[in-house]
């Protein structure tokens, strides 16, 4: 008994410490990036100015003067929002069918969908470039939305499938008995019941779309270029100028951090959906 009590007391102290340590570990790079964004490029690499320095908005002013930040941000919003909506529009019916009307091949299909994520993006760079140019879709919002949707569809279907499997099939059957058609089953029963899971899936999908940098850099020039391209373009041939790069990065991740902050309740609710039965 004494051992149990000791462990419990140790756990009470150590768990919060561990949680804080892990939290700080994850937060530190973001904190450091924000801090560096207020240093000059020269101060950013000087050890004596690690914590204490004279803050400056020079990097942010340079960014807004030299680059059209709002155009990049606008493109990020457009492509991320529509890609998320499109992915959900395809992913929800797909996951519904697999969760409630599974066939012998359902698991194989899920595995196959996931396996497409294993293909290195660089392997299809030239075909994708050639295809988008041939179709006249290079540097268009439509193409970026399509690419982001297809990239994230496997993950979205997997996540939604997992959430939908937690919903008792009897509820869907009861709806059928009451004369609800398939559309009604999805919109009136499934979505309200799995709203937390759908919301967290949408948020994660949105974050993935916002942060995607391989295709958004390579399949755009000016019209559909997102914030990823703004960051990429700030890498100078002489090396990394940490001050200005941190300012651009902070401005790029700022909106998504704010969105995540406001939606953290739904995010946690969705991610823990079905965790305790």
């Amino acid at each position: 008994m004494a051992i149990v009590a000791h462990t419990s007391r140790f756990g009470k102290i150590s768990r919060p410490i561990l949680a804080w340590a892990v939290g700080l570990l994850f937060f530190f790079p973001i904190f450091w990036m924000v801090l560096t964004s207020f240093k000059t490029d020269a101060d950013a690499v000087k050890p004596e100015f690690l914590i204490f320095f004279t803050p400056t908005l020079e990097n942010y002013l340079n960014m807004t003067e030299n680059y059209d930040y709002w155009r990049f941000a606008q493109n990020s919003v457009i492509t991320s929002v529509f890609a998320t909506l499109f992915t959900l529009a395809v992913g929800i019916p797909c996951a519904y069918a697999m969760a409630f009307n599974p066939s012998r091949g359902t698991k194989d299909i899920l595995m196959w969908m996931l396996s497409t994520k294993m293909l290195p993006a660089a392997a299809v760079l030239y075909p994708m470039t050639f295809l988008t140019k041939s179709l006249g879709l290079f540097d268009t919002h439509f193409m970026i939305i399509l690419v982001l949707s297809l990239i994230n569809l496997p993950i979205v279907v997997w996540m939604l499938f997992t959430y939908f499997k937690e919903i008792p099939k009897d509820i869907i059957e009861a709806g059928k008995m009451d004369g609800v058609n398939t559309w009604g089953e999805v919109t009136e029963i499934l979505i309200p019941l799995a709203w937390g899971g759908i919301a967290s899936t949408a948020l994660l999908c949105f974050i993935f779309c916002w942060n995607e940098a391989y295709w958004t850099v390579r399949l755009t020039t000016t019209e559909a270029a997102t914030l990823s391209k703004l960051i990429e373009g700030n890498r100078a041939p002489e090396g990394l100028f940490f001050g200005r790069l941190s300012a651009v990065s902070t401005a790029a991740v700022g909106p998504i951090v704010v969105l995540g902050w406001f939606c953290q309740k739904q995010l946690v609710q969705g991610l823990t959906f079905g965790a305790v039965k």
């Binding site: 680059y67 850099v217 390579r218 020039t221 000016t222 391209k229 373009g233 700030n234 890498r235």
Partner: peptide, 10 residues
């Protein structure tokens, strides 16, 4: 003039 700033390798 439309300017596109890119990293050297990209």
């Amino acid at each position: 003039l439309e300017w596109v700033s890119l990293e050297e390798g990209v």
